[in-house]
Amino acid sequence: MSEYAQPQVLVSTKWVEEHKGDANVRIVEVDVDTKAYEEGHVPGAIAWSWQTQLCDTVQRDILPKAGFERLLGSSGIENGTTVVLYGDNNNWFAAWAFWQLKIYGHGDVRLMNGGRKKWIEEERELTRDAPRAAPKTYRAKDPDLSIRSFLPEVRKAVAGRAVELVDVRSPQEFTGEILAPPGLPETCQRGGHIPGAKSITWSKACNEDGTFKSRDELARLYREAGITGSKPVIAYCRIGERSSHSWFVLKYLLGFKDVRNYDGSWTEWGNLVGAPVEKP
């Protein structure tokens, strides 16, 4: 079985158990909100809320550089810290945080394979104690936008068929049968998908326990859907968190050179006046 392209970005629950007390390791639980964290979390972990801490809360965007520096510094993270991320929803929001840390150039960031789900399934220790992090000074790099797609670039690429576009939402969202995942609020005016996109649901990259499939299985999954990496690849979903997960797979586990996350995703495209929409 082939090793992942960059295996160092993935750690097991066992590794976290063994290293959670290391001085240079900071474990962060990332969820859409922090309720799961409050219920019980990996000992030593701090919490980041996607809604209030990892996004600009005024305009729709990732954190600005200064805000990112404040978040990491106040979390006790320095530029040389090993940051280990995990969360619920199979690490969707942890993957978003990973992507954002890479945009701002953090060197050593890793995902806990299987996330919160696997940790709990294995009945590992949880605590409600929230550690106090001694504030540090953090200096972010200028944003690396080579891993992020914006609307004008996506429109141009779609028109010229210059990219491989991956829609990682559920099949029913892809076809436009539903406008949001069941049980979640609708956030767009139209259903369907961006013309030319291939449907490869994020979950196909995972095993039942939430861990990632092997490199060979992942390569076959994307290859059979026509995603080879011969062109730049853009992944999207509804709000950019599921596609962060697939972006991680394509870039770090499979080693595709040019992979971008279109975080505007369907909430942007599906609300645009006059944007082309494909419905099978």
Partner: peptide, 19 residues
Amino acid sequence: LGDRYYCTVDNVEPGARIA
């Protein structure tokens, strides 16, 4: 967990926690 029970429900497809 301790003396309390916790439950989460997710939609199987796509796998988002809903309650």
